[in-house]
Design a protein around this nucleic acid. Structure first.
Length: 415
DNA sequence: TCTGGGGTCCTAGGACCC
DNA sequence: TCTGGGGTCCTAGGACCC
């Protein structure tokens, strides 16, 4: 029976910050989203003080002041780089690693002997090379490995659910909403069947599960019963979309500011598409504002002949903005989505091509290279403007210790 | 009085994840 | 006054076809 391991970094963003600021160890720490809007990572101490996941920052301001909670603005450049370092360690231990998210990886070991010992060794090595604490769950399926790693965080870092008796016991004491893939809505649909725990869920009849949650729910139930349905994705799946969106630091009323924001987002998205070797056949623009005290979103998209050219995408985004703009509306957020993605090398090129397409591609490549060398945003297109009109708040961002020379940490040896 | 059936493709929206 | 951003997959319903 092949076993899956899930390696999960504890409180990932907070742990990344602590790796470079050991003085934060033992103190309550939170990391905040864009605009310092809400909490996206909490240390154990912060959780113990009652700070909820995704808590709006303004709601916990009093708690922060009272207990001296350290609040930091998110530094994704640092987190992505730390994530890469963790994967590098994992790859030395396992032939196939699936990077499921920035802080979680599934893997299988080459054979099934001494699994717990291997998991412990891997955990120790991640700690040694990156400074990050991780938990490891071992189980015959991915869904169970996930459950195992959640539980492992409280139980010494490694938990094996390969034993069916232990497994059933854990399922029976786990609320069904703590299962990967079941949240509030699905739990509500299961409630009429008397389902409260994960164990209850696994004992439902297949037909009932399927009528309540569809095919996905049924697969999940099998996984929890120990029958593997989800395989390890050794290569990342082809990307379906590229999104760049932001909430504004303050409401935006002018078309000009919206267009400069969208121009910037389009340039970022184009850059990301090029990095992945993709062209977009569709570009969407969306705006968010409030009506009757409720958030509203609206948008529209256009088809394009496949491209990843920044100026083209910037123009398309601005044209849509112009079309959607309503005078007097207090815009709170905006974003662009690239869809209809296809590999850039197989994409059909424009029939009437006078050579300008290739010229533009060379220009894009040069801009990307310079930005990579000099720091993001060093070089910009005319259409993207940095603007105080829509910029976001981030009061306390840590330096990019691992990815920018100027942020390199100074270390002095005591003599 | 009667109102096919089956297939595909596309889209919007729901639900979930980290 | 202040509530993130970036994704995926599934489903239901409409349009269209034979």
């Amino acid at each position: 029976m092949p076993a899956f391991a899930l390696v999960d970094c504890n409180n990932f963003f907070v742990s990344c910050e602590r790796a470079f600021r050991p003085e934060l160890e033992g103190r309550p720490v939170v990391v905040l989203s864009n605009n310092d809007g809400c909490v996206i990572s909490r240390s154990e101490e912060a959780k113990a003080l009652g700070v909820g996941m995704a808590a709006p920052f303004f709601e916990i301001r009093a708690l922060v002041a009272e207990h001296g909670i350290v609040s930091l603005s998110a530094n994704h450049e640092l987190y992505v780089d730390m994530s890469r370092r963790v994967s590098a360690v994992l790859s030395r231990h396992a032939p196939v690693v699936e990077n499921y998210s920035v802080d979680e990886s599934f893997l299988t070991f080459p054979d099934d002997t001494l699994l717990e010992e291997r998991a412990r060794a891997l955990r120790a090595e991640v700690r040694r090379w990156t400074g990050l604490p991780v938990a490891v769950g071992l189980a015959p399926t991915k869904a169970l490995a996930k459950l195992g790693s959640d539980k492992a965080k409280k139980l010494g870092g490694v938990l094996s659910l390969l034993d069916p008796v232990l497994r059933e016991q854990l399922l029976d004491e786990t609320p069904v909403t703590h299962i990967w893939g079941i949240a509030k809505r699905s739990a509500l649909r299961l409630a009429p069947y008397g389902v409260r725990t994960a164990g209850d869920f696994t004992r439902m009849r297949d037909a009932q599960i399927q009528s309540a949650l569809g095919i996905g729910g049924l697969k999940l139930a099998h996984e929890l019963r120990g029958i593997s349905c989800l395989t390890l994705a050794d290569a990342p799946a082809a990307r379906q979309s590229v999104t760049v969106s932001r909430s504004f630091g303050k409401p935006v009323y002018s078309l000009d500011a919206l267009q400069s924001a969208l121009g910037t987002f389009a340039a970022r998205a184009a850059e990301r598409a090029r990095r992945h070797g993709l062209r977009a056949g569709e570009l969407g623009v969306h705006f968010g504002w409030r009506e009757d005290d409720r958030p509203v979103m609206d948008g529209e998209s256009v088809r394009l002949s496949p491209t990843n050219d920044s100026p083209t995408l910037i123009r398309a985004a601005k044209a849509l903005a112009d079309k959607l703009f309503v005078e007097g509306r207090a815009y709170k957020k905006a974003g662009i989505v690239l869809g209809g993605l296809e590999a850039a090398d197989t994409a059909q090129s424009e029939f009437f091509d006078d050579g300008s397409v290739e010229k533009s591609a060379r220009l894009s490549k040069t801009v990307d290279r310079l930005n990579a060398a000099l720091g993001a945003g060093a070089l910009r297109y005319g259409g993207e403007k940095s603007s105080t009109a829509w910029g976001s708040r981030c009061e306390s961002r840590s330096p990019c210790w691992t990815t920018r020379w100027e942020d390199l940490k100074a270390v002095r040896a005591a003599v």
